[in-house]
Write a protein that binds this DNA or RNA. Structure first.
Lengths: 108, 108
DNA sequence: GCTTACGGTAAGTCAAGACTAACGGTTTGT
DNA sequence: ACAAACCGTTAGTCTTGACTTACCGTAAGC
């Protein structure tokens, strides 16, 4: 099971989001990802590790290169979290409105 | 305009997510939010500030109390970010598949 | 006016983690 | 076998930011 909390933790860092965004461009090697970024290649490696552990990235070994790509499971998990949160927020709003209405009826 | 990046930064902290989740239960004072959490009231205050600045929370002053609730704009911004990301990921996958197919045709 | 409750802010501490430099392992090519 | 390319990992540094304590302002109740 992939945790949305882990995904949120992983996406809480700006440079990690940069790395994550570059994964959209298809299978990219670590070197390619690091080029154009302001951090070193090992830093990118570590960010990729976090993204992978969070279910946001997958690796494919090809010779001496490691091609990273986006793991859609992490995105799905995130979407599920967001949808659930949204639902509970709305029902809470509804209940609060009902409580308000009941209070109104009482006072008049 | 509300930035999804700010929202992601804000939700990158576990205890801040706890605070955020408690906001669903309707209008809650800072005291009420802090009760049941393992951190002090000032810590909660600071988290609420971050959430508010990120467009994830709104305040309503009622006497000496401040009632916090969820700002749906932050959630919408987050959803937009997620949707856009998803779209671009899919189109990238599609293009990659096309490139793969073209490569296949060439080699045979 | 005094007291009490509520909560934002400042100062200071401390731990988490982002980063670099250096190293080592593995694969490919000559 | 040697060299080169690629990349993960470790050790160590340094910044960020989460937290507490203490303080101050404000609003309601007596």
């Amino acid at each position: 099971m992939i945790s949305a909390e882990r995904a949120l933790d992983a996406l809480g860092d700006p440079t990690r989001r940069m790395v994550f965004r570059r994964l959209r461009e298809g299978n990219r090697s670590v070197q390619e990802i690091a080029d154009g970024l302001e951090v070193s290649r090992p830093a990118v490696s570590q960010h990729l590790r976090v993204l992978k552990d969070a279910g946001l990235a997958v690796v494919r070994i090809e010779g001496t290169r490691r091609l990273y790509a986006i793991d859609t499971r992490g995105l799905e998990s995130l979407r599920g979290w967001l949808d659930g949160f949204w639902d509970k927020t709305l029902t809470a709003f509804k209940h609060a409105a009902e409580r308000e209405a009941a209070k109104e009826r009482k006072t008049r």
